[in-house]
Every structure is written in C-alpha cells, then in structure tokens.
Design a protein around this nucleic acid. Structure first.
Lengths: 205, 205
DNA sequence: TTATATCATTGACATAGTGTCAATCAAACA
DNA sequence: TGTTTGATTGACACTATGTCAATGATATAA
C-alpha cells in the first residue's frame, strides 16, 4: 500500500507529519487526563513541537478533540443507518435487540474514548452539537422504523412516532453512558433484554 | 415576621449579610452568563465586596452554585417521594401521568435556572454528583413502585424492577432537558401522554 | 548556483482567570 | 480605654489561552 503523501513535496509531507504528531499526542493526553485537564502545553510537549504550532493546525482544544472523535462518531452514524423491515412482531423484537447491542457494544469497545467524549460534551458546546447530530440521526431513523411498523399494523397507532422514537433513544443513550462510566455494574445482556421488552411490550399486563 | 438575625451580634449579622449579597449577586451572574462564563470577579463586583471575600464564604464557583441550587434540588426530592399505591391499571396510569407532569412542570417553572444547572452538571463533577443523587432517588422510588405493581399482579413479572425504573426515568429526564432547552418545540401534554402510554403499554400490539 | 519567495514553525507576550494570605479594619470584650 | 477577635481586602503567584512578528527551511526563478 503506497502512502498518498509520497507524491507530495517535502514541505507538505512535513506539515502532514506534524499534524499527525499533534493528533497522536492529543489522543494520549486526552485519554490520560480527560478533556478538561488536558492542556495544549501537554500536547505540544508530547508531540515535540512549539506551542504555536498546535494553533496552526487546530483552532483550539475543542477542534483538536473533534478531529480525534470523528472516526468513532462515523461508526455511530453507521449503526444508526441499519435497515429495519420486520414482517412480524418477533422479527421486530430480534432486529431491535440486534441494533441495541451494536450501539452499546460500539460504545463499550471504545470505552476509554467514550468517557472523554462524555466529559467533552458537557464542557464544549461545539462537541455537544456533534453528539446531538448523532442523536437526531438515530431518532429520525427510529421514527421511520416506527411508522413502518405502524403501517404494517405491528405497532400501536396511537403513539406518536417522533416522540416515541425520542423516548426510546433516550433510554438507550443513557444506559450506554451508564455502562461506559460504570463498567460491570450491569450485565450487558440484562440491559438489552429489559430495554427491548419494555419498548415492545410495556410495563403493564 | 421577625428575622432570626435580630438577636445575633452585629458582627455576625454583617457576615450573614455579606454572604447573602454574594448569593444574590451569584444568582444574577449565573443567570446572565451561564455557568462557565460566570467569574468570581463578576460576582464580587455585583455584590460590592473585595475579591477575597467570596473565598471566605465559598470554596469556589462550584460551591457557590451548589448553594444556589439547593432549594430547587430539594423540590425535586419532594417530587421523587410522592406516594404510589394504585389498585388498578387505570389508577396507575393516572398516578404516573401526575408524577411525570409534576417533574416536568417543576423543571419548566425554573427553566432559566435549570438551563444553568444542565451546563453546570457537564462542567463540575461535584454538581454532577448532586444531580446523580436526585436521579438515583427517583430510580429507587420508581423501583419500589414497580415491585408493588408486580405484587398486585398489575405489572409484568418478567421485567427487572431496577432496570425498568432506570430506563423509564432516563426517558423522563431527557425529555425534561429537551423541554427546558427547547421551549415550545414539543407540547408538554403530548410528551406526558406519549411517555406514559409507552411506559405502561409498550409499542407493539 | 544563487537570490528570492513562500510558508511551516516558534516562543515571547498580552490577556484573563484562579485561589491564597499577610495586612487592615472594626466590633466585642476586659 | 486598650486588647483581642474575626471579617474583609487586594496584591500576588500561578496556570492556561490565543496571537503574532520573527525565524528558518524548502521551493522556485534567474
């Protein structure tokens, strides 16, 4: 595999390399210190560049972190786009369980990074906005699924798809953060089964 | 109504007054600027005290804000403690609707303050902890309610009370923040009805 | 090959906020 | 009235941010 920097002039190659060094150092510093305690000084020290260099490549700490989040966030977008066309209630139940597991598992696979993401969402409006983008994408997708299930006469007509999708995603998201922050407090499978049962069947007989 | 500072020596009265001035000024500064942008300098300027005085009465900005939140947080604790002893599914449904409305309405009545609280939760671990205390109190109370409903054969036995209570509260909490942050985007009654229907009856036929 | 232009890199600087503490001031008390 | 006690204060040391004029190295042109 040839690196696409091969053809570039040495100057641009160097610049790319500097940027990469800052990203790598940034990731390490964020994982070690969390979002708030991480400083540009720590990053440039680890990357072995001058202080001002960081500001050449990134507007500020928030932007550096957003760049580092991007890959992970795209994985969430992919999970959100999963197709959903159940023909029966049983099939719906299985589909939903599968998607919940993908969502929670992705967060747990990147647990250390997700902890920092959670902190960053609380501190930086720009990063919060990025997460809201993912949330709304999920909710929109789930709304479509609910309308489909209603058209198939599988789901109750009297529930508002947008509100129901939102409430459902909120539960999922919060359990995700709970699992990320308190590993081991709950069993993943228990959470998935209970969430899905609640969603599909409700609490009362 | 006699003020209970009447009997105190003048020196302590003065100290109390200074503290009150800082609290009042703090509230104004937080509401005007939000949590992060609020500074001690702004507070002491508005309170007309010296810089160091603020640190005599409060360890830091977080502690000042926590003191300001206390009343509001206690109101949430009161809502969490509401009794719940339904004899039938219909009664349960009405009880639940009532409690959801109290919860959401309290947040909306203190909307401006709740916006700052949300920001502060994201920034300050101490304040986050305070909110988690309220959340866990709600969840514990709801767990008890679910167990009671299960014992009455009103609620499904196969749902885990702790997990179900948690998922249910998460939906409520997130809708609360949504209503607080985006006033008017959703109709309060629509949210309440949909949440409660989902919770009690589930999505599928 | 040399001169010049371009642009990546740099750290000192201005700015802004925090928390501390020795000094000051005024009330309480002997 | 003199002394003690404790409330108040702002200057100080510290930490972090973001900017920018100067520097240095590479690319280009003559």
């Amino acid at each position: 595999m040839t690196n696409n920097t091969d053809q570039l002039p040495a100057r641009q190659q160097q610049a790319l390399k500097t940027r990469q060094k800052l990203l790598q150092a940034g990731k390490e510093v964020f994982l070690e210190n969390g979002f708030q305690k991480a400083t540009i000084s720590q990053v440039i020290k680890k990357a072995k560049t001058g202080y001002g260099t960081a500001y050449v490549y990134f507007k500020n700490k928030d932007e550096l972190f957003i760049t580092l989040m991007e890959d992970l966030m795209n994985q969430f977008y992919e999970v959100a786009e999963m197709p959903f066309k159940p023909q029966a209630k049983e099939e719906a139940y299985e589909n939903i369980k599968k998607q919940v597991r993908l969502f929670l598992q992705l967060a747990l696979d990147e647990r250390d990074m997700m902890k920092v993401v959670k902190e960053a969402i609380g501190v930086s409006p720009e990063i919060e906005e990025k997460w809201y983008g993912i949330r709304e994408r999920f909710i929109e997708r789930i709304s479509v699924d609910i309308r489909y299930a209603q058209a198939q006469k599988l789901a109750k007509e009297h529930l508002d798809p947008a509100l129901t999708a939102r409430g459902w995603f909120y539960s999922n998201e919060m359990f995700m953060w709970e699992l990320v922050m308190n590993k081991g407090k709950y069993q993943l499978d228990d959470v998935i089964v209970n969430l899905t049962r609640m969603y599909t069947g409700g609490l009362y007989e």
